[in-house]
């Protein structure tokens, strides 16, 4: 089918890809080995810095009691709810802003201020308003993900090619038709990249919320660990959090690949 040169080219590309992957894994393993060695030779205080072995044994203990899955599930559950709500409300509000330029002009400074405001500052108020429970956590995560979702989707809406809108109008399309046949499908790509930001933002918000007020969840695990000075638990929590974040991100990436072909 192809020339030999082409096969060589493909082979070279695959080899490059392999080297990248290999180096990535190698660095990770090297990091853990180095860390463990430093701990073994007492060059770092494991009471403060923990060690890979202690971290993994903490995780195994959590696994044995079954607590591990409860904590992961609570965090994932809270993240998914605020992600879903953030995406839905973000799309809805962005649509309203696009539909009514007057509202978007009025809302502009408020959105800018809300966007730059560190949402964690609202934490104490949220706890008083929503109570010390899951509602506060979701509200916190929603605040963090919603504003950026609105801004991104709205930007994508108003950046639609003016000539295409002109074309729609020359075909006598009404506003709803312009939205549903042009503006929305045209923004799908940006919408999906917003989802990627949104899932990370939701997780940040949930952990922040769990730090402030919670009885379970990965954020609770980390916070509790630091309060009782069990650094093994803190490091184990962070490690699990990394895994959860990565898995959720790759899920969105997978959905993106399915949707955009």
């Amino acid at each position: 089918m192809f020339s030999e040169e082409h096969y060589l080219f493909i082979k070279k590309q695959r080899r490059n890809q392999f080297y990248v992957r290999f180096t990535q894994i190698f660095i990770l393993i090297l990091f853990f080995i180095l860390w463990q060695c430093l701990a073994n030779f007492h060059m770092i205080n494991t009471f403060i810095f923990s060690s890979p072995r202690q971290m993994f044994s903490t995780i195994i203990e959590l696994h044995k009691t079954g607590d591990l899955y409860q904590h992961i599930w609570v965090t994932v559950y809270e993240t998914l709810i605020s992600f879903g709500l953030g995406t839905f409300l973000g799309l809805l509000i962005a649509t309203i802003l696009w539909w009514f330029p007057f509202i978007s002009k009025v809302a502009d400074p408020y959105l800018t201020i809300l966007n730059s405001l560190p949402k964690v500052a609202l934490g104490p108020i949220i706890i008083i308003w929503c109570g010390a429970g899951i509602r506060s956590i979701i509200f916190m995560a929603l605040l963090i993900s919603l504003i950026i979702t609105i801004i991104n989707i709205y930007q994508s809406f108003i950046n639609t090619d003016k000539n295409k809108i002109k074309l729609m109008k020359s075909l006598k399309a009404n506003k709803w038709q312009v939205y549903i046949k042009l503006i929305f499908p045209n923004s799908i790509k940006d919408f999906i990249s917003t989802l990627k930001i949104n899932i990370s933002m939701s997780l940040i918000g949930v952990i922040m919320g769990e730090f402030l007020v919670s009885k379970e969840g990965i954020g609770y695990l980390i916070m509790y660990g630091s309060q009782v000075f069990n650094l093994n638990l803190v490091i184990a929590g962070i490690f699990i959090l990394c895994l959860v974040a990565a898995i959720m991100y790759y899920c969105i990436l997978y959905i993106e690949k399915k949707l955009i072909k």
């Binding site: 090619d161 295409k164 075909l171 038709q177 046949k181 499908p185 045209n186 799908i188």
Partner: peptide, 19 residues
Amino acid sequence: SLFPFRTILDNCLLGLEIN
């Protein structure tokens, strides 16, 4: 101003759909 997410035929049918 062809819509990149529509096929050639669907692009041509746009006006009929709208009306």
